[in-house]
């Protein structure tokens, strides 16, 4: 059932993301050819060429912004509208467990976040005529290897994923709690987000205070950071993120299971 849910979730979101990605890549390509002889840098006076070039770049950066904003808006909107709005009457009467609805939204959101980041990265390669950036790539990889060790290639993505998951689930949680209110649900959701954020920060501070005098902190504070020390630190952050994500998931599931209150 989760696979079926994801199939429809992708269908309903892809129709917005795919054209946006395509437009971004096209504009990256256009910008690359708008500046074949580096006219922008060479021009001494204002010329139409410079204007076109400037406008092209402005649109390109606007599109990058649009990709990120769309990703965030859709994470919010798909949950709010599809589950907590009128469409919720359809979704919650499907023979599907509540956790599968949440997992569906979460997984598709994570995948779109990753794709958005990838497409923006690819567009940068396209824009800069790629060769320099591609030549830099081995150095970046080497750098990661030296600072984090081979384990870094697992710990860093794990950290990013756990942070992404807990971030998205916190938004869901805010909306799930916001729908408990009879009126001004959107406003209540914003309020709930602030409350959840505050609680999360408090938990971080408490954890830091608890760990302040342990061997763990000595390891991190040591002058020369070893890859082992880095990975231990980032790995525990990743695990912390996962625990927070799991807590959010459990709360969203509880609220939607027992306190669902569609308008």
């Amino acid at each position: 059932m989760l696979a079926k849910l994801m199939k429809y979730e992708f269908k309903s979101t892809a129709r917005l993301f795919i054209p946006l990605y395509a437009v971004l890549l096209v504009f990256a390509l256009l910008n690359r050819f708008l500046n074949p002889f580096r006219t922008f840098e060479a021009a001494e006076n204002f010329s139409l060429q410079v204007f076109v070039r400037g406008a092209g770049m402005a649109i390109y950066f606007f599109l990058i912004l649009a990709v990120f904003v769309t990703t965030l808006v859709l994470i919010i909107q798909r949950f709010y509208k599809n589950l907590l709005g009128d469409e919720g009457y359809l979704m919650f009467t499907l023979p599907v467990k509540t956790w599968q609805h949440i997992a569906n939204k979460l997984l598709t959101s994570i995948i779109w976040c990753i794709l958005s980041a990838l497409v923006v990265a690819v567009s940068l390669f396209v824009l800069t005529a790629s060769s320099e950036l591609i030549r830099l790539l081995p150095y970046i990889i080497e750098g990661i290897k030296n600072t984090f060790g081979i384990a870094g290639f697992f710990v860093l993505p794990a950290l990013a994923l756990s942070q992404l998951a807990s971030g998205i689930l916190m938004i869901y949680n805010a909306m799930a709690l916001g729908q408990l209110f009879q009126k001004h649900r959107l406003l209540a959701s914003f309020g709930m987000y602030c409350v959840l954020y505050l609680i999360q920060q408090m938990i971080y501070v408490i954890c830091m205070l608890l760990l302040a005098n342990t061997a763990f902190m000595t390891l991190i504070r040591s002058a020369s950071l070893t890859p082992l020390g880095m990975n231990l630190f980032l790995g525990s952050l990743a695990i912390g993120g996962l625990i927070i994500a799991a807590a959010h998931f459990a709360l969203v599931n509880y609220v939607l299971n027992t306190k669902l209150n569609l308008e």
Binding site: K7, S12, E87
Partner: peptide
């Protein structure tokens, strides 16, 4: 939910599907 067919008093149809899509949706679930 497998044996109950429910018509709510409001419109739960989303706005991006075609009629044939929502039929496939029901057929799937």
């Amino acid at each position: 939910k497998k044996i109950v067919s429910y018509l709510p008093e409001r419109n739960y149809l989303n706005d991006w599907m075609k009629v044939s899509d929502i039929i496939s949706f029901f057929d799937d679930f």
